[in-house]
Each structure stands twice: as C-alpha cells, then as structure tokens.
C-alpha cells in the first residue's frame, strides 16, 4: 500500500447521556492511501457515521472525542482549534452524506451553494467561483452544468443531487472524501453509475475515499480495502477481495452469508442471530459474543487483535481459518481498478 493520506489511530468518541457514557467509537484504527477506496462496513448503530463525523470534527455536544488521533498527511486533526479545523474541512477532507434530498438547501440555487463552498476557502470572485463550480459538475458527469447551476435542488433527480453533492466535495480537490452511505437512497442503476464515477475519480484525481456503508455488495465491487465495524470497534480489516472471499471474523462471515445474491433462490437466507446490542449495555469482552456461534469462554474478556501473515487483522479469539480456494462468485459488476 502507498503512503497513507488519512490514518486514524485508536479513535474514541463518546456521548455523555443520562444513561451513562456511550462509547460510539471505541478505539477505531484504519488508514487509507492516495487514490484508494476504503469500505467502512457495519450494521446500523455500529459507529460508522460517528467515525466519519469525528474525523471531520463535526461531533456536537453531548458527544466528544475522548482520545486517539486523526492524522491527515501527518497532521493531527483532533488537536486543531475550530477555525483551523474549518479551513481543513471541505478543502483537504470533504464529506458526502446519505440522503441527497436533505443535504442540499431546498431554497438556494445549486450555484449559490457551490459558490459559497468555493469561497469558504479561496478568496476568488463570484465569477471565478461559478466557473469552478461548473467544472466540478462537469467532472461528475452532469449534463449541461451551466444550466444546472441555476436550478434548485427540487428540480433535480436524486441521483443528480448526489452527483452535485460529490461535485461540491470535489471542489477543492481534497485529499480524502468521506462518503456516508451516499448511494443508499438511490436506485440500483443510478447507484451503479455513481460507483463507477467514484472509482474513476479516485483513479484520476488521486483522492482517497472512505466509503461508509452497510451494503456489502457495494463494498465488494468498489473498495480496495475493507474495515468491518461492530459496536464501535473495528473487528476485521484487510484487502476487500480477500476479506469477502475468506472472512476471518465470525461477524464478517455472518454478514456475507446474509447477502441474498450469494444464495440459491428458494432456500432460507441465513441471518446473524440476535440484533446489534445497545451501546448503553454492551456485554463485557467481545461485543459480538452473544450472537456468535464460535464464542467460547475466552470471549468474556476483550479479545486481542490478531494479525495474520497477509497483513489482515481480526479482533477475535477464535478466528476462522482461511479458505484455500477463491469462491468469489460475485455476479455484480466490479468497479475495482485492476491493481
């Protein structure tokens, strides 16, 4: 892997509530290199989005970053003052949100919002800013970008809006873009187009993406690397193809088994039993143990991070043995670059 642009080390974000301190992100570490796409995978409530907001410094009270480092090109973002952080946000590290219906202001023209985004970091005239906005729209494949600048968000389709949001994220050629489930609200065909566009952008501009999603099909076709989260912790990391072909953590295996495309029609779909535990009363030790078929007596204490010879890790006492063959029976298109 090339030199990491974004390196998250032991990040801890907690929310102080009446029910006690909720550790939404509990010692998360990962890194992503230039032009690479990291899939941050997990169920709802696993802390994926909070991780994204923590990196950007957008955690609001009662939440706070309790520890760890977020290194962007070697600079620790968690130590920055708010104004210094604002100058980085959007310029060096940008974010795209889940719902394209909600992330654009309904009463402002696309152009107005994009010009404001340009001028948040560069002192340029409105005319120059508008030109840059137009170029960014063209870059994400929006037809007749000049006219789109004068449109209001409600005049665009969901897919177009998400492209606009990605264009806004691209305005300052950031080193990293965090994408928080950006295609979840879209049609599958539109999702495919956007994924292909993102892969192309990562390859062409060298922008690194952290793609937060619960959708393994998306990750398997898009990401270079995978980072699986469960209850605020990273449970497994590794190259996407390897993790999907041969998961080492029982939770990853359970998630993969419940992807419908991998199964004979008419047979019962395997599920991970139980549901995501509430952060307010996590079991001691491994949080996944109560739902895990392989759990043993050692799981009542926090399991160690197991490092495997191929650079992969898993947070488990009883990791699954690697599978020798490569049954990557994915019928979906792959957007991964041939590397």
């Amino acid at each position: 892997m090339s030199e990491a642009v974004l390196r998250v080390k032991d990040l801890r974000t907690q929310f102080k509530t009446r029910a006690g301190v909720l550790k939404a992100v509990d010692g998360v570490s990962f890194e992503v290199g230039r032009g690479r796409i990291l899939g941050l995978v997990g169920e709802s409530g696993s802390g994926k989005s909070v991780t994204g907001y923590s990196i950007l410094g957008l955690i609001e009270p009662p939440g706070e970053i309790a520890g760890g480092e977020v290194l962007l090109n070697g600079q620790d973002l968690t130590r920055l003052k708010s104004e210094a952080m604002r100058k980085i946000r959007g310029a060096q590290i940008a974010m795209v949100f889940q719902d394209p219906m909600m992330t654009l202001n309904p009463v402002l023209k696309i152009g107005t919002q994009m010009i404001a985004a340009v001028r948040a970091h560069d002192r340029v005239s409105r005319k120059v800013a508008r030109g840059r906005a137009r170029d960014a729209l063209a870059k994400v494949g929006i037809p007749s970008p000049e006219e789109r600048l004068d449109s209001y968000p409600h005049q665009l389709s969901g897919g177009m809006r998400q492209r606009v949001a990605i264009a806004i994220a691209l305005l300052h050629n950031p080193a990293v873009i965090l994408a928080d489930e950006p295609t979840t609200a879209l049609d599958v065909s539109i999702q495919g187009q956007i994924l292909a566009e993102v892969r192309r952008l990562a390859d062409e501009t060298g922008t690194a993406f952290v793609w937060v999603t619960h959708d393994l099909a998306v990750v398997s076709s898009l990401a270079d690397d995978i980072c699986v989260m469960y209850a605020g912790r990273v449970v497994e990391t590794g190259p996407a193809a390897d993790v999907i072909a041969s998961p080492r953590h029982p939770y990853t295996a359970g998630l993969l088994a419940s992807v419908p495309a991998e199964h004979e029609p008419g047979t019962r779909l395997p599920q991970v039993p139980g549901s995501t535990p509430s952060l307010a009363n996590l079991p001691p030790g491994c949080a996944f143990a109560p739902r895990c078929a392989k759990a043993g007596p050692a799981c009542t204490t926090t399991p160690p991070v197991q490092h495997f010879e191929d650079g992969r890790t898993a947070l488990c006492n009883y990791p699954i043995e690697p599978v020798s063959c490569q049954p990557l029976s994915s019928t979906s298109t792959t957007y991964r670059s041939a590397s």
């Binding site: 950007l56 957008l58 604002r86 100058k87 980085i88 946000r89 959007g90 310029a91 940008a94 974010m95 949100f97 719902d99 909600m102 992330t103 654009l104 202001n105 309904p106 919002q113 404001a116 985004a117 948040a120 970091h121 949001a165 806004i168 994220a169 305005l171």
Partner: peptide, 13 residues
C-alpha cells in the same frame, strides 16, 4: 438539518 451539517462539512464559517 442535514444541509446545515453538509454546509459545515464544506468548511463554511
């Protein structure tokens, strides 16, 4: 609202 969060993520003051 989400668009205020998005505006902040763009680095708007």
């Amino acid at each position: 609202s989400d668009f205020v969060r998005f505006a902040r993520a763009q680095g708007l003051s």
